[in-house]
């Protein structure tokens, strides 16, 4: 098997006195689809926020493509990563948020175009063409000049995915992307994720409460409980063969 693209080595994270992650060891391989499930407050979101550099780990290492994300070598010593170091790695990672976080002052086309043009210095016409293709792919080709405030929640979330995809990340993180949506809008967003999962070769990490969906598309399922990975394996391994009573009771609640 290929080398993992992301490795967590004994990663801990505390907020004040509360330890949210208590030693996470995890490998994510290129093109692998990982679903992170577990009860609220188990630290699911924190795992991917550390990778997106939105939070700093309290201890442990995260290795991305062979490079330590939060530490860098300076004069032969390992020191805390600076902004430049983070930026040089972060470009491979994209993220879609629970609350969309679209830029309200830009049209949806501009939302997609800003970062490739200014961050990656790509040619404007190329970026525009690619952005339009991507927005068409998520079914919003007719809304290019609309502002986010004119869209429904499901449409906003599809724009957010297009925005992340235009950056061509190697790893895409999905942070409970359907939790803030009205129930009737969840389906359209899941369809786009399924499309990405089936047709793109990037690694994906989905933090989600959509149990059936996650188990359906995931190569690997992590069950997180109280800050540790309580169970991991393929969907069928976790669902059908787990002997962990917490996993079973959790799954029972969702699957009735």
């Amino acid at each position: 098997m290929a080398e993992p693209i992301v490795t967590y080595q004994d990663v801990h994270k505390s907020f004040g006195d509360v330890e949210v992650l208590k030693g996470i060891d995890l490998d994510i391989y290129p093109a692998e689809k990982v679903a992170v499930i577990g009860p609220s407050g188990s630290g699911k979101t924190t795992i991917i926020r550390l990778l997106m550099t939105l939070e700093q780990p309290t201890a442990g290492d995260i290795i991305v493509d062979g490079r330590n994300l939060w530490k860098m070598e300076k004069n032969g010593k390992w020191v805390h990563a600076n902004e430049n170091h983070l930026r040089s790695i972060r470009g491979d990672i994209g993220m879609v948020f629970q609350h969309f976080n679209l830029f309200p002052h830009m049209t949806i086309l501009e939302n997609c175009m800003t970062a490739p043009i200014h961050v990656k210095n790509e040619e404007k016409n190329d970026v525009k063409k690619r952005s339009i293709e991507m927005l068409e792919r998520v079914g919003l080709g007719d809304k290019l000049d609309n502002y986010p405030s004119q869209l429904s929640g499901g449409q906003k979330q599809r724009v957010a995915m297009a925005r992340a995809l235009v950056m061509r990340p190697k790893i895409m993180l999905f942070d409970e992307v359907t939790s803030a949506l009205d129930p009737e809008l969840v389906g359209e967003v899941l369809n786009v994720i399924r499309d990405i999962a089936e047709n793109d070769d990037m690694a994906m990490v989905l933090v989600t409460h959509e149990m059936d969906f996650a188990l359906d598309i995931a190569d690997k399922v992590l069950f997180l409980d109280e800050g540790v990975i309580a169970e991991q394996g393929t969907a069928s391994e976790v669902i059908e063969h787990s002997e962990n009573p917490r996993v079973q009771s959790f799954l029972q609640r969702f699957r009735g």
Partner: peptide, 21 residues
């Protein structure tokens, strides 16, 4: 909102770009 900072960070903007755009 904090989410705007986070979205800009996720798109790998520098702190100057985040402020400016």
């Amino acid at each position: 909102s904090q989410g705007q900072y986070e979205a800009a960070t996720a798109l790998n903007m520098s702190s100057f770009q985040r402020m400016r755009f």
